[in-house]
């Protein structure tokens, strides 16, 4: 095909049953000018080497499964154009995560952190569906909307130095999610979540690297969420001294 150009892919490979440590493997394949990195991986998987393992699904940057390191930066591979790179592209599994196989990383650690922030509406009394919806003004929606856009692609975890150094740290996506519920006008669980935020590995572990927001493909800006949460958790903590009762809502 004449519109195809050759590119070299240096891909991290790891099979726990065979390899002591991850190694790299090089593939030279013809690519089309409009391809994303993921298209190249799929081409390799389909036509060159069926043993390559990677996760992907929606290929439209919303399912969040194809996050990998591309030339050292965490990227959604379905959204990353090959034309932005030179003749050699390095693809590896996300940093800061244990690697299960090739480009597939361990997500269970994240799932625990995710659950720890209680990402659901907490209310003393829930309404029955027959009573209709809660009123929420567009401004109240706007207050948390941005933080609800996270697709759990894990790029922020791969970029954050604190995640790699402090294993207890809840991390950007989980905190942004908890903060999203704290800001939701329908929710009453902020005291509970702030407690989690104040614990070891909570919001105060963040050291302002701002990397999460730099790499976020969905402009969630987790750094903003974490630092807002720091402030609100302090306010909440101070309030708990003034009126201890206000903690139970």
């Amino acid at each position: 095909m004449s519109d195809r150009q050759k590119k070299t892919f240096v891909i991290t490979r790891f099979d726990p049953d065979k390899d002591e440590v991850p190694k790299t493997q090089t593939y030279e394949i013809p690519v089309r000018p409009d391809w994303k990195v993921l298209d190249a991986l799929n081409f390799i998987k389909d036509e060159v080497d069926g043993t390559l393992s990677h996760r992907w699904s929606c290929r439209m940057a919303v399912c969040g499964s194809c996050g990998m390191m591309v030339n050292g930066e965490p990227k959604l591979t379905c959204k990353t154009a090959l034309s932005d790179y030179g003749d050699t592209v390095e693809v590896g599994p996300l940093s800061n995560f244990p690697v299960i196989r090739d480009l597939v990383v361990e997500l269970e650690g994240f799932m625990e952190k995710f659950k720890a922030v209680k990402p659901w509406i907490l209310r003393a009394k829930e309404k029955a569906p027959e009573e209709g919806v809660y009123r929420q003004s567009p401004a109240e929606l706007e207050a948390f909307k941005q933080f609800s856009m996270c697709i759990n692609c894990m790029l922020c975890y791969a970029a954050c130095p604190v995640v790699g150094n402090e294993p207890d740290y809840l991390g950007p996506a989980a905190i942004a999610l908890g903060h999203r519920y704290n800001l939701d006008s329908r929710d009453e669980g902020d005291a509970e979540r702030n407690q989690v935020f104040r614990e070891e590995g909570g919001v105060y572990s963040c050291s302002y690297a701002n990397e999460c927001s730099e790499v976020c493909p969905k402009n969630v800006d987790p750094a903003a969420a974490i630092n807002q949460a720091k402030f609100l958790a302090v306010v909440d903590w101070a309030k708990s001294f003034v009126s201890p009762r206000s903690r139970k809502k």
């Binding site: 829930e126 309404k127 009123r135 003004s137 939701d184």
Partner: peptide
């Protein structure tokens, strides 16, 4: 309507009218 309302109660960020309705 009941199912979508239930989802609203669970936190789905439905877009809103100015009066706060869905």
């Amino acid at each position: 309507p009941l199912e979508l309302t239930r989802l609203e109660h669970w936190g789905c960020p439905w877009s809103r009218n100015d009066d706060g309705s869905v």
